[in-house]
């Protein structure tokens, strides 16, 4: 059956890429998998973690694994939007004719690492908005299409708040996933040290192509989503809202704005990827659960009370999940 072959190919390819990246990125399996999920779901990733946890290495390794060009933008406060998107420059031909020519910026790559994005000014940050959402850049009134597949992986440091510009909600909402990069445990740290201080460096092979990635995205969209499962997914999203149907006590108390419709889209799309990874052709509630936190945590705006009490968006999402799970009862209670 073709569907089974497609699903099987997807899973195999995904695991192949994951395995390849995992050879280099030690102790961050969850982050690697989630990044690949975003790649397969046609989404961008916001990585939040301390410096030196391998974020840049992750992007570079991924680009090698999927055989796609990679660019890295180190955001600084003095960076201008043109430094991201590119700009028109005056060029003179051999005949002496002068004309403006568009010089593509670093965003013109399949995989873009926006390192420490919160250090750039909002003006520069917003330069990424169109690129992330529309997959194109407009400079001087001319639209320039970005290459496909296109994936932005932005990083931000959670502790260095001095001289940073927190990402506006509109830009945060454009990230498919927000991944928290944890500090590796002792065993993983030992492996990292040994692997990076020895003579042998892990070699990354090309296990996929850009076409494979695009095909993976097509397969993902075919996964069946039942009405009943969708209803539960929407209940999770609505459970993060402080008002309305299905709200939770946590949301009422600590949330200013709940997850956006893009959050619901991200939730379902990510769940479809997880379903394929679980050798299924349909989305289940378990898939939604796996996707809920990375897909929704950056789309929820907490209030001051939450900040004062140290409540996180993950807790709010957890409450919404628990609420939906409690409401999921056997309709035949005999």
């Amino acid at each position: 059956m073709e569907a089974q072959q497609e699903a099987s190919w997807f899973r195999d390819k995904f695991l192949e890429i994951k395995d390849m990246v995992g050879r280099v990125i030690v102790g961050q399996d969850q982050v690697v998998e989630s990044t690949l999920v975003a790649l397969a779901a046609n989404g961008h990733v916001l990585l939040e973690g301390l410096p030196g946890l391998g974020k840049t290495l992750l992007v570079r390794t991924l680009s090698e694994a999927v055989s796609l060009p990679f660019s890295r933008i180190q955001f600084t406060p003095d960076m201008m939007p043109a430094d991201v998107t590119g700009t028109n420059v005056l060029v003179q031909s051999r005949e002496g004719e002068r004309a403006f020519e568009f010089r593509k910026g670093p965003v013109f790559a399949n995989l873009v690492l926006a390192d420490e994005i919160n250090r750039a000014t909002p003006k520069t940050q917003s330069a990424l908005l169109e690129a992330m959402q529309e997959h194109r850049v407009t400079v001087g009134g001319v639209q320039n299409e970005l290459p496909e597949p296109f994936l932005v992986m932005a990083t931000q440091n959670p502790i260095e708040q001095e001289g940073t510009y927190p990402l506006p909600e509109a830009q945060l909402d454009r990230f498919f996933f927000k991944l928290l990069v944890p500090f590796p445990d002792r065993a993983d740290l030992a492996r990292i040290v040994q692997q990076t201080t020895g003579t042998e460096e892990p070699v990354t092979a090309h296990v996929a192509t850009g076409e494979d990635v695009l095909k993976m995205r097509e397969v993902v969209r075919k996964v069946v989503l039942a009405e009943d499962v969708l209803a539960r997914g929407l209940a999770i999203v609505l459970g993060t809202h402080p008002e309305g149907e299905g709200t939770t006590d946590h949301a009422k108390k600590y949330v200013r704005y709940g997850a956006s419709p893009r959050g619901a889209q991200a939730l379902v799309t990510a769940a479809k990827v997880y379903a394929l990874l679980d050798s299924r052709f349909n989305v289940s509630f378990e898939d939604l659960k796996r996707a809920a936190r990375p897909a929704l945590r950056h789309r929820i705006v907490l209030n001051y009370e939450a900040e004062a009490e140290g409540v996180t968006t993950d807790q709010v999402v957890g409450q919404a999940l628990a609420s939906v799970e409690r409401g999921t009862k056997d309709p035949i209670g005999v």
């Binding site: 073709e2 569907a3 699903a7 039942a226 009943d228 052709f281």
Partner: peptide, 23 residues
């Protein structure tokens, strides 16, 4: 069954829907 049955009950007629039912 990870929502296989309810998905099969509601699934349409495309290839993935048939795969869901078969599964």
């Amino acid at each position: 069954l990870r929502d296989r049955a309810v998905s099969a009950e509601e699934a349409g007629k495309d290839e993935f829907a048939q795969a869901v039912r078969h599964d």
